[in-house]
Amino acid sequence: MRSFWKGAITFGLVNVPVKVYSATEDHDVALHQVHDADGGRIRYQRRCEKCGRVVDYAHIGKAWDSGDRTVIISDEDLSRLPAERSHEIEVVEFVPSEQLDPIMFERSYYLEPDGSSAKAYVLLRRALEATDRTAITRFALRQKTRLGALRVRDDVLLLQSLLWSDEVRDARFPALDEPVRISAQELELSAALVESFASDFSPEDFRDDYQDQLRELLDAKLAAGDAVDTEATLGRPTGEEGGGEVLDLMEALRRSVERSRSGQQDRGSEQKKPEHGRAQKRGSVG
């Protein structure tokens, strides 16, 4: 686990240097897109709509449209904003932990003491445990000012970024405004159903069956030799800004030849495509 950010928790005159780590990770199998005819990788090009050229990352900026005008903002512009330069996790208040609505939680980060002594870190951790309160903080990360909740998890300080209040939508459903009559018997039966499923939550008891089965499928295909050489799926980089236009032209020519040939031959029926497995959101390729 590697730290991706360093800063300091500040409250009053207390300064607690910390290293920041992502507390979670994605376990999904990383799939990419290929051409089903030859297995070649599908790449996305960053093409300028005005000049038609493929643009390198070094020349890509950010912009905001006001309607009829576009404001272009450079990285230098953003670096001058105070929040972007700050590496402080500023504690603004300590609140009862039960007042935090879980819907506001966004990302979680572990904080490690950074320095020769962990005394200030341990002192803050014990203060949070003794008072059963959560520290509400402000900090800057990835060009955004963020609201955060600082609490204790397994003897480690955990920082969770929070959504701003205007980012949480109100739930307004007209159907719930209509009066609904629930009988005592229906309520009793529903309570009995809930009780029949009652248990203590153990996250380790649950597995992502789809990802497990996907890994088994991939292993089986490798074992059966149902795979192609990775190098063979990679095209040649053009190395030139205008190269993307040549690739587009070649693709158009190739498709034209294939269409012409298919018109001259009576294939009788289309080639059957492989069957897809269950359609699940987690397994989609973006």
Rank of each mutant, 00 (worst) to 15 (best):
F105S: 06
A83Q: 07
L78S: 08
Y110D: 03
K62R: 14
I73W: 10
G67K: 07
I103E: 12
D65H: 13
T70S: 11
Q99F: 06
E93L: 15
R69I: 06
E98N: 12
L111S: 02
S116N: 07
R85D: 05
Q99P: 00
E84V: 15
M104R: 11
E98G: 03
D75W: 07
I72K: 10
M104K: 14
Y110W: 14
A63Y: 12
P82L: 15
G61K: 06
G115N: 05
A83S: 06
G115K: 01
D77I: 07
E90A: 14
V92R: 14
S86I: 00
V91S: 04
R85Q: 12
S74T: 13
G61P: 00
S74L: 07
E88D: 10
A63S: 09
Q99G: 04
V91K: 05
W64M: 08
L100E: 01
K62W: 06
D101T: 00
R107L: 12
S66F: 07
F94K: 05
R85T: 06
R80W: 08
P82T: 14
S86W: 00
S86N: 03
L78C: 09
A63N: 08
I89F: 01
E76I: 12
I72P: 03
R80K: 14
S66A: 15
Y110V: 01
F105I: 15
R80G: 06
D114H: 03
V95N: 04
P102Q: 15
Y109V: 08
S74N: 12
I103R: 15
F105G: 05
E88I: 03
Y110M: 04
K62L: 10
I89R: 00
S86Y: 02
L111G: 01
E106M: 12
I89D: 00
E106S: 14
P96W: 02
E88T: 09
S108G: 09
R80Y: 09
E84N: 09
H87C: 08
D65F: 07
I72R: 11
K62I: 06
F94P: 00
M104Q: 15
E84Q: 08
Q99E: 13
A63F: 13
S79G: 08
E106R: 15
